[in-house]
Simulated assay, not measured.
Amino acid sequence: MTDPQPLAAAEVLDIVDERDRVVGQAPRGEAYARGLRHRCVFVLARDARGRIFVHRRTEGKLVFPSHYDMFVGGVVGAGESYDEAALREAEEELGVTGLPAPTPLFRFLYERPGQSWWSAVYEVRCDVAVSPQAEEVAWHAFLSEEELGGRLAEGSWRWVPDGLEAYERLRAYRP
């Protein structure tokens, strides 16, 4: 089996400015190393009962290894639309096919020292059994809003900071 991390580092991304306009391209590894602004998608996946897919990332991930996340998603490839990336990433990470197109909700610019990406937040309903990619997901479960809130409040899980910010913005978006 091929190690997915070198392939991921070589994936070409569009580099964007503060207004989300494409200004160049770079391999993902270079974009991360140099802190180049790029595009990402965050997809909140709910099952038929409305519970949220929560997972722990594998320890080999390029960013935020072994952190928990309430979104599936990832980078938008060069020339790819946010909508295309949202569906691709959701199906890949959940290990399913035939999902409905994720519903776009909002976008925001995530910025921290050395990290900057335009983030498009989506939601999708997944009514079929999931089979997450072993290379991406070390653990997973569908949690109710209350269970997720309890995990966030207790503070024992290390959450991906961009996903946490996206979730806080989503909660503010939906009072």
Rank of each mutant, 00 (worst) to 15 (best):
residue 141 A to D: 06
residue 155 G to Y: 11
residue 105 L to C: 06
residue 111 E to Y: 01
residue 104 P to W: 14
residue 149 G to Y: 01
residue 141 A to M: 05
residue 146 E to T: 14
residue 147 E to M: 14
residue 127 D to F: 04
residue 119 S to V: 13
residue 158 R to H: 07
residue 110 Y to G: 11
residue 158 R to M: 05
residue 106 F to A: 04
residue 159 W to L: 00
residue 138 A to K: 10
residue 129 A to D: 06
residue 124 V to R: 00
residue 133 Q to A: 14
residue 128 V to G: 07
residue 150 G to D: 00
residue 106 F to G: 04
residue 99 L to M: 10
residue 101 A to W: 09
residue 127 D to V: 11
residue 132 P to A: 04
residue 127 D to A: 15
residue 115 Q to P: 00
residue 126 C to N: 12
residue 99 L to D: 04
residue 164 L to K: 03
residue 153 A to D: 06
residue 152 L to D: 02
residue 123 E to Q: 13
residue 145 E to V: 14
residue 151 R to I: 01
residue 145 E to M: 10
residue 133 Q to T: 07
residue 105 L to M: 05
residue 138 A to I: 03
residue 115 Q to I: 11
residue 130 V to A: 01
residue 124 V to S: 01
residue 141 A to G: 06
residue 133 Q to C: 07
residue 148 L to G: 08
residue 118 W to P: 06
residue 141 A to N: 09
residue 119 S to A: 11
residue 166 A to Q: 09
residue 165 E to D: 08
residue 102 P to I: 10
residue 129 A to W: 05
residue 148 L to C: 08
residue 126 C to D: 02
residue 143 L to E: 00
residue 132 P to S: 03
residue 158 R to W: 01
residue 104 P to N: 13
residue 152 L to S: 08
residue 167 Y to T: 06
residue 145 E to C: 07
residue 98 G to V: 13
residue 131 S to M: 05
residue 114 G to H: 06
residue 156 S to L: 15
residue 106 F to C: 04
residue 97 T to M: 10
residue 119 S to R: 11
residue 122 Y to E: 00
residue 163 G to C: 10
residue 146 E to Y: 02
residue 167 Y to Q: 05
residue 101 A to K: 14
residue 149 G to C: 02
residue 99 L to P: 09
residue 131 S to C: 09
residue 158 R to F: 02
residue 125 R to I: 11
residue 129 A to M: 07
residue 139 W to V: 12
residue 152 L to H: 11
residue 154 E to Q: 14
residue 113 P to L: 03
residue 150 G to M: 01
residue 158 R to S: 12
residue 151 R to Y: 03
residue 105 L to F: 06
residue 144 S to Q: 08
residue 125 R to M: 09
residue 106 F to M: 05
residue 155 G to H: 13
